[in-house]
Amino acid sequence: MNATERIEAACSFLLQSPPGEINDVLNDVRNIISDDDSLHEGVLPALKEYNLSQFMTVDVPGTDHQSIVSEAARVAATQEGQERFIDPRSKTSFLFDHLSLVRPEASDSQPEEPDADSEPFRSALEKATLTYLAAHFHDGVTSVFSSKEAANQFVIQVVANKYNPTNYWAGRWRSSYTIDLNENTVRGQVLVNVHYYEQGNVQLSTTHTISLSLPAAIVTSSPSSSASKILALIENEEGKYQESLNDTYQEMGEKTFKGLRRALPLTRQKLDWDKVLGYKLGAELASSKGMFGGS
């Protein structure tokens, strides 16, 4: 395997990193590359892609909250390895170094004036989303943007991480919604990634697409009322998705996992499936809101 092929392999491994484990994966692929300078240069595009798609979070300088680093937040590219992102909540932008994996950091905070026409509704959406976040994701982070694509479009993004290496699991919940007041629609996705690795290696990666039409009564309400009703619709959809995950993993525990094994394993003793369920693997994977800190 030549140097280019090794870099490509390293990038592939990085992009498949489970939640909270990308630094561990990077340390492992160092053994493949054996050259830190070449490694950093070669994997930088993969790290950028990973950070943006996984909604990496950073402490915003001068504030007491975190902001999401994503494509919706990106405002400009700067020097090598760094880009500028916006935090609409504090009305600032900051530099982010994609190579700072151990503790992602923001720097060089600067004022960023919002669009005067869209800010009232964006701010109302932000307030409603923060209320929703506090109710369901204790350690979650949200950023709400005015869309860069068109007027009267807004993007809500939420990420919640739970890292529990002591019990051999880690998980990430991401959701992203585009609210289009021109078409009166809400379109988005919920993405759940979980890694469970006690005496094995089980990963869950699932995507749920949501598409809603907004009644005229919601769109014509005040920004505060409209935003609260939109978040209520999102809450209802995410609640139904959580229930579907619960049902799926209950069925897997009762049927699918049993079907994967022969009647008698090599020990010639029957497997105690009730004991297996006692490990609560299905519950850990399915109870997304409980797992990510909510109720």
Rank of each mutant, 00 (worst) to 15 (best):
M1I: 12
M1K: 06
N2H: 05
N2D: 09
N2G: 09
A3H: 08
R6F: 13
A9N: 04
A10T: 02
S12Y: 14
S12T: 15
Q16F: 12
S17T: 06
P19C: 09
V25L: 04
R30D: 07
I33A: 02
D36I: 06
G42R: 00
V43N: 01
P45T: 01
Y50D: 03
Y50Q: 04
N51P: 00
L52Y: 13
V60Q: 01
P61I: 08
T63D: 01
D64S: 08
H65G: 04
E71H: 02
E71C: 03
A72P: 01
A73D: 02
Q79K: 09
R84Q: 10
S90T: 07
T92C: 10
S93K: 03
F94A: 08
V102Y: 07
V102N: 05
P104S: 04
E105F: 08
S109P: 03
E112A: 14
D117T: 15
S118G: 08
E119C: 07
R122N: 04
A124Y: 07
E126F: 13
E126Y: 12
E126G: 02
K127N: 12
A128N: 03
T131W: 12
L133I: 06
L133N: 04
A135V: 10
F137K: 03
H138A: 15
H138W: 14
V141H: 01
S147W: 01
K148P: 02
A150K: 02
A151P: 01
A151W: 08
Q153N: 01
F154I: 00
N164M: 14
P165Q: 07
G171I: 13
W173S: 06
W173V: 12
R174V: 15
Y177L: 00
T178F: 00
T178A: 01
D180S: 01
V192Q: 07
N193P: 01
H195C: 07
Y196D: 11
E198Y: 13
Q199G: 03
N201L: 13
V202N: 10
V202I: 15
S205A: 14
S205I: 15
A217L: 12
I218M: 11
T220W: 10
K229N: 10
I230E: 07
L231D: 02
L231C: 05
L231V: 06
A232H: 11
L233M: 11
E237G: 02
E238M: 12
G239A: 13
K240C: 05
Q242V: 15
Q242M: 09
T248G: 05
T248Y: 12
G253I: 09
E254V: 08
T256D: 14
K258F: 11
R261D: 06
A263F: 09
Q269S: 12
K275E: 10
G278H: 04
A283K: 11
A283W: 08
E284C: 11
S288L: 14
S288H: 08
F292N: 11
G294M: 06
S295G: 09
